[in-house]
Design a protein around this nucleic acid. Structure first.
Lengths: 210, 210
DNA sequence: AACGACATTACCCATTTGGGTGATTTACAT
DNA sequence: ATGTAAATCACCCAAATGGGTAATGTCGTT
């Protein structure tokens, strides 16, 4: 089975030593072959069409266009390209930017090469490899933040706001007067430092409260 | 190293055969031990305090309280408990509900027992194991849906709306009249089938447009 | 050439919202 | 017991919003 596999890989990595080492690991592994390497995103963008990788390994720290910005540009050229970030950075912001821009995996550099091979295999089979610490971040982002400053009642109202419900309707739904709803909304605004429904909803959704 | 590991596991699974098989696999593996098994969420909730698992494997199809609903109840009892879903279901809704409620992993039943052991090890080490198809769903949820019905200009306005900006300010920002902004907003409402800023923002955010 | 989508602007009007101030009651914690 | 937070309600007023209708110019497609 394994011998029938032949995964074509391109690598974008500006550090020649790391690139060489990656290339060696992959070429020596059964079923993997490196069909192209680039020292910059620009080089990859220009020449990728000549190679036809199943998977592209992409560094973040690159001269010129960063790996993060390169993702969407590469995807525009080859929408079906599977991009896996391969970097030392574990900052949430970078992780989420990468995934948001269309990366299908995020591996942390320097872990066992066995994991790298396994990750690439996963991509090839339709998976989405992530290093454990990355996976934990990703999973954590789904959990609503519980440090809510808002009271239960205020959360109920906020929920209604996000449905576009107006004060009168909310009041009916909660069996109180519209004045009460107004009061709740004013408190919500104070606590969230906003001054409109749209902004309140936006902030709450970004924080994962609703 | 491996021999120093001893991961204590509890299992909630109503199918006696599957439970037995899981128990066998885990107990026979070096460094794993099953310290408790339950046939229902209710049983787990009542007796979990007597066991002290590092990881709890949780089925979804259970008599009475479902696995999904059990997550938050179990977490309330033991906030530090690491819950991994172990189920046949791959439906997005269930996956996201589980993660939303606080599960740290989601494994699909029936895959190689090697992956199960690896997954549990990952949880123990702070990771978040997911079966490949689940990981792909999770990653995909980060990519903004691009089938936007809105025009570029409308997207700009929508973005401003989500910041709580009012028509006058948006008009200034985009160097057009407030009447124009009103027109754009009306079109946004028509296209999104909403009739307030808050609802438009909410819908757009849910769809991952902003 | 005609059509539709987009961007722009205008006017009118009823309704809603946001902000300010103030009051009562309950409940929980210091 | 005293205070604080929560939930409830009222009144006022200026500003913003939502909905309707209508017009113009540009651009790309058919």
């Amino acid at each position: 089975m394994k011998s029938t596999l032949n995964i074509k890989i391109c690598i974008v990595e500006d550090d020649a030593l790391i690139l060489k080492s990656l290339q060696q690991v992959l070429n020596n592994a059964e079923g993997f072959s490196v069909t192209g390497t680039f020292f910059s995103a620009e080089a990859a963008l220009e020449n990728l069409k000549d190679h036809h990788p199943d998977v592209l390994l992409l560094d973040i720290d690159l001269p010129g266009i960063s790996g993060i910005d390169a993702i969407s540009k590469l995807k525009k050229l080859q929408p079906e390209l599977n991009i896996v970030m391969l970097t030392v950075h574990e900052e949430s912001q970078l992780v989420f930017s990468a995934l948001h821009n269309g990366a299908v995996g995020y591996l942390v550099k320097g872990s066992n090469s066995k994991y790298l091979l396994q990750g690439i295999r996963e991509v090839f089979e339709g998976g989405a490899p992530m290093s454990p610490s990355i996976a934990r971040q990703v999973i954590a982002s789904f959990k609503p933040q519980t440090e809510t400053i808002l009271s239960n009642r205020e959360m109920e109202v906020l929920q209604k706001l996000s449905n576009g419900t107006n004060n009168k309707q909310i009041a009916e739904d909660l069996f109180v007067s519209t004045n009460t709803i107004k009061a709740h909304i004013k408190n919500i605004y104070k606590k969230l430092h906003v001054n409109s429904r749209a902004e309140a909803v936006s902030k709450a959704m970004k924080k994962g409260w609703i």
